[in-house]
Design a protein around this nucleic acid. Structure first.
Length: 931
RNA sequence: GGGCGAUUAGCUCAGGGGUAGAGCGCCACGUUGACAUCGUGGAGGUCGGUGGUUCGAAACCACCAUCGCCCACCA
């Protein structure tokens, strides 16, 4: 083995072999475990969020697989309608073409080409992450099977009246020329203005003094479509005007003054212009009052040809300026106030979205939402952490009908056909429609141009990927799936819709649990984004990247090129040496360690470096184990190490495994990882491995003792590798293949092993006590050494004073171990009657471990050291006595707590006496010292 | 306007009614036969604030402060 851990030498070969040997396929077993991957966009690349999420899913999957459970991690990709179409359109634009130049069929073909060309990229990256998805079952949302599922669902919902077509106000993206669902619209505060316009009262409505009403608006250009002015029904100022009319400026149309509760009399002037075709509230008011709806815009959000000639074809924002100017010219501009308002933008294009009147398809959601709410309420589905269910409920309880049609070309085309009279027929295809409705061939049919929202097919993912609507073996075995691992950002987009559709079509919940993880942010808590230039590529963390390449990567292809210098500067400051190669296992272990219950996760490079070091530690411990084995005979026949340390490490191993089991069951990968780290470094390496040297390097030790030590050393490591494997698949496999033969375990791959089971025989409290005694002894000597700056290489002579029979027995039993770990040259009990030499002292219960000073130790420093300890003991005693002197504590606290406290007081008291005596002796020594 | 979360060591974060934990960083010593991507020892926190519950609160409750996120139609 190399002296240092080199991840790049080991990762690919193992993955290729696992995949070749089909190790990720379901392998039987009565119990089943299934995760469906949240399908990444087919043309996407792996980002930190994916890498994190995939690590969690892979760890859970490999864990279950090792446990002998029939395990499937179902993989696939999403066609991502809008995102993919935009990518390809951008390419076309670069060639000076638009999708309309190509036409629909050619364009869609071109997207398929693009998918074929770049669709595999993220799969390659998933392999680098070690993801053990079953590649043989990979699906794509536009596969034939999945598309058929989409059609079936659409048809059934339509037949049940749960899908309908209607002319409604929708969120219109004027760049993409498509409707968006509410969820695809993001509203941010932006600085705008509130324009106050005077709307003159109609002649018969004014009464001398009163000549106009003042309305306030943030969207002046929509006034062209105003069909009323509304006031609050109880607003005294305007009572007398309700039912009268104003004359709409510019357009010169008479519009009524109506009364509606919606109006807040406190805001602005208490008069609201009503534009039913361009505002969601106004739309509802328009419905209530039977107002006409006047559309003023085109698909591009320019003023349409029904409007006054001066405005036709003007972009909405140019029209706004012109309207304001004209209103001012007409002396109807009361004032302009600065105003902060929410501006709705499309989540993909960033374009300001317009409420726009169009024909769209909708899912009637309430009947689907009801059982979906119940499933979470009654515990059929559990959110982890639990409080996300509240977020889910909040949204589900006020859920609106879902607009599912998109005016795109890339996606599942809506299976609806129209005849020349506008009748709608829904079916699998044209032939099916004709057959179902007895339409003869001379009836002209035209398929709906729209495609479905991508999330419509995503909603079917847990069952469509398993073969639905066919009744497959996979559905039978794996549905409902075990757990969905996802971020909170798509609870509404995806999780809720899967629950609704799963219950409706697959007859059960799609998953038993939903594990919601946090979002990966950068080290400052900023969201990672290209425009901020703070993106880390998981693959760069695995392979490393030099500074120049990193700078180039972060500064090319920016939407706002002017940010490049700033990004470059920040990157050079943060990564003066570029990014080192950490390897997949270190990255995965970092993600596991960060997988806490919080929402945000700051990705700190220090952590991954630490876990790379951890890998190296494991690597070298394994080198030690293997190199030692070489020098020994075959140890297969040897009994396990039955000494104190051997029994102790086995007990600690069991304890660690139990912790990992417990924490994985509750998705606390961080605590599971911590238990592995702690055991590996601080128990196995720091103690057992060092203790083993006392036997292995001891010329006097019996051969069978060495064999036994060797056996426990190698078997513990082998078991540890199995526990590590779900977290760090590569390094565990690499080392396992070398260690397994030594540990007497057969198999070609660590994937063939089974998860370790605790052995109750390993639990012996006396072992823990004895080991604790040994550790305290060694630590006592080390502390003197450390605080006195005695070189670690200097072997010490010590004298043990006031040792009890117990101490003597324990010392005798473990003398060689202690001598080795504390690096002692000699250790003797003080003969009865002798007085102890001047020493630095460690208290071990009632026993004193004395390091004679002779030439080594400074009296003053020892006094200082013990005084510090004394102070601490005194403070502790005071605290304990404070409690014990409190009558109600003694009376009301549980007996065992009081007993513990009493014992503590006694121990502190004893420590204090010993320390005081020792300090006394040192003080005398010092005063006698002529120096 | 509703809802959720956070506030613990210099930094990143666990924990949780019974004497405050980890990793990184820091200080000192050290190249002893797995590992300097290391070893040994050490320093460092009145657990955001104020009240309350309790024998006991960093933990539970209330309020407050600061920060963050989600949802919502105030023109």
């Amino acid at each position: 083995m190399d002296k240092t851990y080199q991840p790049k030498n080991i990762e690919r070969k193992h993955y290729e072999r696992w995949e070749r040997e089909g190790r990720f396929k379901p392998q039987g077993g009565d119990e089943a475990f299934c995760i469906v991957i949240p399908p990444p966009n087919v043309t996407g690349t792996l980002h930190m969020g994916h890498a994190f999420q995939d690590t969690i899913m892979d760890t859970l999957t490999r864990y279950q697989r090792l446990r002998g459970v029939n395990t499937l991690w179902q993989h696939g990709t999403d066609h991502a309608g809008i995102a993919t179409q935009m990518v390809v359109e951008r390419q076309l634009n670069a060639e000076g073409l638009s999708r309309r130049d190509l036409g629909r069929d050619a364009f869609v073909e071109r997207v398929w080409d693009w998918k074929a060309k770049s669709g595999g990229h993220i799969n390659g990256q998933l392999r680098r992450m070690g993801a053990s998805v079953d590649w043989s079952r990979e699906r794509f949302t536009m596969d034939d099977g999945l598309s058929a599922a989409v059609r079936d669902v659409f048809i059934q919902l339509h037949e049940e009246g749960l899908i309908y077509r209607g002319k409604r106000l929708v969120n219109w993206d004027p760049v993409l020329h498509t409707a968006l669902s509410d969820l695809e619209v993001l509203s941010e505060d932006e600085q705008g203005s509130l324009w106050h316009f005077r709307y003159p009262l109609a002649d018969d409505s004014s009464n001398g003094d009163e000549t106009h009403l003042i309305v306030a608006t943030t969207r002046p250009e929509t006034m062209l479509g105003d069909t009323a002015v509304a006031v609050h029904p109880n607003d005294e100022r305007y009572q007398h005007l309700i039912g009268k009319h104003v004359r709409l400026p510019i357009v010169d149309r008479l519009i009524p003054i109506i009364a509606d509760d919606y109006v807040d009399p406190e805001f602005g002037t208490g008069c609201v212009k009503i534009t039913p075709a361009h505002d969601f509230n106004d739309y509802e008011i328009g419905q209530r009052h039977n107002l006409p709806m006047i559309n003023v815009l085109t698909d591009d959000a320019a003023i349409n040809d029904d409007m006054p000639a001066d405005y036709r074809g003007l972009d909405r924002f140019d029209a706004r300026k012109k309207i304001v100017a004209q209103v001012e010219t007409l002396e109807l501009l009361e004032k302009i106030e600065p105003h902060t308002l929410k501006v709705p933008r499309g989540d993909r294009t960033g374009a300001v979205v317009e409420p726009y009147l169009t024909d769209q398809w909708y899912v009637k959601i309430a009947p689907l939402a009801e059982p979906a709410i119940a499933a979470v309420e009654n515990g059929d589905i559990k959110f982890v952490p639990e409080n996300w269910s509240k977020t889910y409920f909040d949204w589900m309880h006020k859920i609106q009908d879902w607009c599912i049609s998109r005016q795109l070309w890339w996606g599942h085309r809506i299976p609806a056909w129209y005849d020349d009279n506008g009748n709608i027929f829904v079916g699998k295809d044209e032939a099916d429609v004709r057959a179902k409705h007895n339409l003869s061939d001379d009836v002209n049919l035209r398929q709906d141009d729209d495609v479905l929202d991508t999330w419509f097919s995503s909603a079917l993912w847990p069952f469509s990927t398993l073969g639905w609507p066919e009744k497959t073996q996979e559905l039978d075995s794996f549905y409902p799936t075990s757990v969905l691992v996802t971020g909170f950002d798509i609870i509404f987009f995806w999780v809720a819709r899967m629950i609704m559709f799963g219950l409706k079509f697959a007859g059960d919940v799609p998953f038993r649990e939903v594990y919601i993880h946090g979002l990966i942010r950068d080290q400052d808590g900023q969201k990672m984004s290209k425009s901020k230039g703070n993106v880390l590529d998981p693959i760069d963390l695995i392979d490393g990247i030099d500074l120049e390449s990193l700078v180039a990567k972060r500064t090319t292809g920016l939407m706002q090129p002017h940010l490049a210098p700033r990004i470059e500067k920040a990157t050079r400051r943060q990564f003066p040496e570029g990014i080192a190669e950490f390897g997949t296992d270190a990255l995965r272990f970092t993600f596991a360690s960060l997988a806490t219950t919080g929402r945000d996760i700051r990705f700190d490079l220090g952590r991954i470096e630490g876990y790379r070091n951890f890998c190296n530690k494991l690597w070298n411990a394994s080198r030690f184990v293997l190199s030692t084995t070489e020098t020994l005979d075959d140890n297969q026949s040897a009994e396990a190490d039955d000494s104190l340390s051997g029994r102790w490490i086995r007990a600690r191993f069991d304890h660690m495994v139990a912790t990992v089991d417990r924490q994985l069951a509750r998705y606390r990968l961080d605590l599971a990882a911590q238990a592995i780290y702690e055991f590996t470094w601080h128990e196995y390496c720091d103690w057992y491995l060092e203790l083993s040297k006392a036997t292995l390097y001891d010329d006097d030790a019996q051969a069978h003792a060495k064999q036994a030590t060797m056996r426990t050393l190698s078997r513990t490591l082998e078991g540890l590798l199995r526990v590590m494997h779900p977290f760090m698949p590569f390094i565990s496999e690499e080392i396992w293949q070398r260690v397994a033969p030594v540990a007497g375990v057969a198999g070609d791959s660590i994937c063939d092993t089974v998860w370790p089971q605790a052995n109750p025989a390993n639990h012996d409290p006396s072992v823990a006590d004895d080991m604790q005694w040994l550790q305290t002894f060694v630590l006592g000597v080390r502390q003197i050494r450390g605080e006195m700056d005695i070189a670690p290489g200097k072997a010490l002579d010590i004298i043990l004073v006031d040792a009890s029979a117990d101490d003597r027995a324990r010392f005798a039993a473990n003398k060689k171990l202690i001598m080795k770990l504390a690096n002692l040259a000699d250790a003797d009990f003080l003969p009865a009657g002798d007085s102890e030499p001047p020493s630095a002292t460690a208290m071990h219960g009632e026993m004193k471990i004395c390091v004679p000073m002779a030439g080594l130790i400074d009296v003053e420093r020892e006094i200082e050291r013990l005084t510090k300890q004394l102070g601490k003991s005194q403070a502790d005693l005071a605290k304990t006595q404070g409690k014990l002197s409190n009558a109600s504590f003694v009376e009301r606290a549980p007996a065992d707590v009081v007993a513990t406290e009493k014992q503590r007081a006694q121990e502190h008291q004893q420590q204090i006496e010993l320390l005081e005596a020792q300090l006394d002796a040192l003080a005398k020594l010092e005063s006698n010292d002529p120096a």
